[in-house]
Amino acid sequence: MTDEWGDGTRAVRVGGPGHAPGDPFLPGPVFAGTYHLPGEPAGPYQYGRYANPTWTGLETAIGALEGAADTVTFASGMAAVSAVLLGLTGPGDVLVLPSDGYPATRTVGAHLAERGVEVRTVPTAGDELERALPGARLVWLETPSNPGLDVCDIRRIAELAHARGALVAVDNTLATPLGQLPLALGADISAASGTKALTGHSDVLLGYVACASAELADRVRSWRSLTGAVPGPMEAWLAHRSLSTLQLRVDRQGANALAVAEALLGRPEVADVRHPALKGDPSYDVATRVMRRFGCVVGFTLADADTARRFLGALELVADATSFGGVHSMAERRARWAGNDVAEGFVRFSAGCEDTADLVADVLRALDAASPG
């Protein structure tokens, strides 16, 4: 029945146990470095670095949400990114990366370039991405991009890339599988940081790679076993527990994000308001074709770094923190980190699950407090 269920039902039900009398709704985490293994190695659980029943439940659940043939979880989002980029490319290959995506992804690309991989970095939006495809072995997309919130047409890029023999991987962190289904749009891999909206409580580091084929998943899983980039059983259990509220959270966060973005449009001291659901946003037309929900992140620019600092300091409901996707709203001046090509006054705002009216009022009041005079 999974294919017939709605998003909320699948988020609550997938990956759980059966209904045997006395069973818990979700079994507790299995803490095991070693399993009983008499005779020749057989069975799914042979050693703690290879597999764990708690990972299996979470991977089954995420795989059902992503529409994957198989899914592999990792200790962090960057562990998942690295497994794909390092595990699927080698000397002489061509790797295409977004120039406007998460800076650490480009850092991995720089390491690969030192080892003989040709790395082409191009913007998420526009025609340069298509022109970078010839000869590529792997195309990594981040859509919507972080922090600029540009969107590309996954289906079109996947068709063009596959015609040239390339694999396509999509960073689905911001959208979540309830906002966007890269595999259904033709991508080979959907990877994400589960640290963000997937788990949503700012208390877990986790990553995953969902694959359209079991063969790709086997390669990624082998990389995980080799490097030991495995999730802890408690983190995996917390992540699985959090999936049951995923739809509730992303719907509320998305509504809050759009409300904040619309309120910001009316403020003369705010420039370049970005959210994919805003009509008139540069990403709107493409986003409405490839996305089902539009995410919790809003981008906008204030006059300068000092104005942004005053704004962030005046907020009461919004934490000054470097993440997004949590139930608590958070924001930061993104230029404080190296590697982000944004204005000094650019603010990345992640809407949480607070009451919409309270959140919008807090933002507008903080803008008043930050304005000169």
Rank of each mutant, 00 (worst) to 15 (best):
T2W: 12
D7P: 13
G8F: 01
G22I: 04
F25V: 09
L26I: 07
F31H: 14
P38R: 07
G43I: 13
G43R: 09
Y45G: 08
Y45N: 10
W55T: 00
W55V: 00
L58H: 01
T60G: 01
A61C: 03
A68M: 11
A68W: 09
D70W: 14
D70Q: 15
G77Y: 04
V81K: 03
A83I: 09
L85M: 12
L88A: 07
G92Q: 03
G92C: 05
V94F: 06
D100M: 09
A104L: 12
R106L: 15
G109D: 06
A110N: 06
A110F: 05
R120H: 02
P123L: 01
T124E: 03
D127M: 13
L133Y: 05
P134V: 02
G135Y: 02
V139E: 04
L149G: 09
V151S: 10
L160Q: 15
R164M: 10
A169C: 10
D171N: 15
N172D: 13
T173K: 05
L178T: 09
L183R: 07
S190I: 02
T195C: 09
L198D: 05
G207D: 08
A212C: 06
A212H: 10
A214E: 15
T227A: 08
V230L: 13
P231I: 00
A236W: 00
H240M: 01
A255S: 02
A257S: 10
A261Y: 04
L264F: 01
E269P: 08
A271F: 03
A271W: 04
D272G: 02
H275S: 07
P276W: 06
L278N: 03
L278T: 03
G280L: 04
T288P: 04
R289D: 04
M291N: 04
V297H: 08
A305G: 12
A305V: 15
D306L: 15
A308I: 13
G313K: 07
L317N: 02
V318S: 01
G326E: 12
S329I: 03
A331Y: 08
A331V: 11
G339D: 07
R348F: 07
A351R: 05
L364F: 07
L367G: 07
D368W: 06
G373Q: 14
